[in-house]
């Protein structure tokens, strides 16, 4: 079994020694591995590679890699372009990224042989992982995200900008970007949870910082649906906390359906905006589904604000019912 595995590598190694690199057409013809992403610069890079303008191809594929850092195929194309362009360090890192992202690809053995060929061209062995400056920048991004610092020059998003501006491409960039997004969402969800939880409060400062983080994130790329929902939710809560009740109603309106917490927050905003009728309608609907007594208590207060004491008492009786009192 061992012998069977080694035989192709030896043959490829012999071919590499003879400078038998893949022809330019292999960039797009090698169907054994992952393909290239759907990006306009892919065509640019492919054209430059086929025209043996390998430096331009490297630039084009690096641009593609920055936008698609988790695409294995672009690293293989970048690696081969860099090899022909005489950039063995870039080639070695790209080959390693390819094998990291697609370890089970059909051409993995072949690419490993190419990686060894590229490594021979290095004057000194290249350590695993990104360069030190890139690694340091990655650490800064993660640290700031972990500290819930997203917006501003000292935020994780600014650090991510710095990282992206460096002459380095790799899946670590994608991981850092994804980590920032994930942290932003998690913290936002946690903040909404704190706003809803009776035993905790979401401070105005925390809400404002989170809203600013989402704004900064939106500037660096379009938000998906979940990102947009969270951005609006935290912004609406921040407006509610800031006493901007009407704005909060409008901000929360599109994203509240489906989330009882946000619907309740919208009801609070409506009540605070003295739109008691709308608040009562929303709370009445929410009361049918929610089992939190605060809904009934707030409903009673809204009715009391309208002078409907009997209806308020009805709501408060519900609010004061002990858990399980209506069962059995």
């Amino acid at each position: 079994m061992l012998g069977l595995c080694l035989m192709p590598a030896v043959a490829l190694g012999q071919a590499a020694d003879e400078g038998d690199l893949p022809p330019p057409a292999a960039v797009e013809a090698d169907a054994a591995g992952p393909g290239l992403p759907d990006d306009p610069d892919v065509a640019v890079g492919r054209a430059a590679y086929n025209a043996q303008k390998y430096a331009e191809a490297v630039t084009a594929f690096q641009d593609v890699a920055r936008r698609h850092p988790r695409s294995a195929g672009v690293y293989r194309a970048l690696a081969r372009a860099a090899s022909w362009a005489g950039q063995p360090e870039t080639a070695v890192r790209a080959y390693r990224h390819y094998l990291q992202l697609a370890p089970d690809a059909g051409d993995a053995t072949k690419v490993e042989a190419e990686l060894k060929l590229a490594e021979r061209k290095l004057s000194t062995p290249l350590a695993e992982g990104p360069p030190d400056d890139v690694a340091a920048a990655l650490a800064v991004v993660k640290a700031r995200a972990a500290a819930d610092a997203f917006a501003g020059d000292d935020g994780a998003l600014a650090a991510l900008d710095t990282l992206l501006a460096m002459d380095y491409v790799g899946p670590e960039i994608a991981e850092a970007t994804a980590a920032v997004d994930a942290t932003l969402r998690a913290r936002t969800d946690e903040l909404i949870g704190r706003w809803w939880a009776p035993e905790a409060t979401a401070s105005k400062e925390a809400l404002a910082a989170m809203a600013a983080g989402w704004a900064a994130r939106a500037k660096r790329g379009a938000l998906d649906y979940e990102g947009s929902r969270m951005s609006s939710a935290v912004t609406g809560l921040q407006q509610l906390a800031a006493g901007q009740f009407a704005e909060a109603v409008e901000t929360l309106g599109p994203v509240a359906p489906g989330d009882g917490r946000l619907r309740y927050a919208q009801a609070v905003a409506l009540a605070r905006a003295e739109r008691h009728v709308e608040a009562e309608q929303l709370l009445t609907a929410l009361l049918r589904k929610a089992d939190d007594p605060r809904v009934a208590a707030l409903l009673g207060l809204v009715r009391r604000a309208q002078g409907r004491i009997d209806h308020a008492l009805d709501a408060w009786r519900i609010a004061l019912e002990p858990p399980g009192a209506g069962e059995g």
Partner: peptide, 8 residues
């Protein structure tokens, strides 16, 4: 506590 203004 009904509007996240205090902790309960």
């Amino acid at each position: 506590c009904l509007a996240d203004e205090a902790e309960c």
